[in-house]
Amino acid sequence: MAEPLVRIARVSKRFVLHKDKSLKDRVLYWRNREKSRSDFKALDDVSLDIGLGETVGLIGHNGSGKSTLLKVIGGIIEASGGDVYRRGRVAALLELGAGFHPDLSGRENVYLNAALLGMSTADTDAVFDDIVEFSGIGEFIDSQVKFYSSGMYVRLAFAVAVHSDPDLLLVDEVLAVGDEPFQLKCMNKIRQFQREGRTIVLVSHSAEQVADVCTRAVVLDGGRIVHDGGVGEGIRVLRDGYERDRLANEGSETGEQRRPAVEIASVSVTDAAGRPVGGQPIERGTDLAVTIHARVVRETEWITGFTLQSTLGHAVYRLNTEGLGIDLPTAPGDYDVRFAIPSTNFGINRLVISAGATDGAGEPITLLDPAGTLDYADDPFGAGVVQFAATGTVTPTVA
């Protein structure tokens, strides 16, 4: 087996939190300074191997340790315990404008940033025009970067990083700063790196972005790895954590108030004749009915609906009662909310159903995910998220 490009062995990282930031706090803690400090464990016994050519997505809740782990991998911060091994040239795009000096021009910062990434002046000369073209900075390349917008910052920083010929590219959430055309350009560059066999570690809060480009997902929760493997399963683990936290936030309520105002008991899918769908692949053009079986526990205004998504978490179709102009009963009781979907033609073999309810202001009440699956027959002609009874012809071109 090939030696991994990155090996993280039982790594931990602690930060000291200081409470004596004001004069009042310093007076309060002056007799015992130890009480003014507390340890925060950002990473706890993390072990991880990343092989050559992998694209790994680091995902998790805010504060779960994703960015800290990325900085430990890049050598930006030192681990409190454990060992970190790396091979090859590393390009890290971790913070907006990191490695840039505000009083230097864009041109000067390109050479400074490239030097920090291990490039010689001759190496930078060879790719300088490509960096400027990729970033789209144009005539502003000779302006001081302190006058740049946040988008210009990240475009130039990313351009330098991807033209440094890295073996390992570390990318934090900074890509969210760029505009849509630049984000597309970045994703295309990442896919080019994948084809070239380079290794990429990406931190993102976008499950769809991770599902789109990553070959592996690592889910962090409270500084520990709770999943390392398939992207689809990783996204499910992440969303289960979101739901767990939501329920925990409701745990301070007592008695009947602990129950959500609306509960989703189950979801059933039938064909036009009312027969349950399952057992056999669903054919193109089948009429379906999705029925959400809900219980209103306390009088409330509510909206319900469902989502069909791929096993990797890509949303394929969404529908809710608000979109259809349906007013739901507010009185406590059991209700069946039925959605008719005529002539379905999904081209994805397996779709995962989730169903939920929100209040009148759109705040989440409850979520059932997954609520079931739909298996569709293979598209005999094409590929994609939908399928058609396609035909084709060829005729001679008339001059």
Rank of each mutant, 00 (worst) to 15 (best):
D240S: 15
N188L: 09
N320W: 04
H101K: 02
A126Y: 00
D20W: 06
E208K: 06
G313E: 01
G65W: 01
F15I: 12
R318F: 08
I225R: 10
R295D: 11
Q144I: 05
G223I: 08
K189S: 06
E299Y: 02
G251R: 11
V84K: 04
G323N: 13
L202K: 08
M152P: 09
G60F: 01
D271M: 09
V296H: 08
Q387S: 02
G251P: 03
P281W: 00
G138Y: 06
V337W: 05
I59N: 05
G333P: 10
V269I: 14
Q257L: 14
R191C: 06
E322K: 15
A79R: 01
H205I: 10
D39M: 05
G99W: 01
K146F: 08
I341Q: 03
L23F: 06
G75V: 06
T215W: 11
F306A: 06
G274A: 07
R89T: 04
A161Q: 15
V262Y: 05
P396E: 15
L5W: 06
A207M: 13
T121C: 11
G372L: 12
A272K: 09
G392Y: 04
A294E: 09
S204M: 10
T397R: 12
W30K: 09
L156D: 10
L351E: 00
F147S: 15
V110R: 07
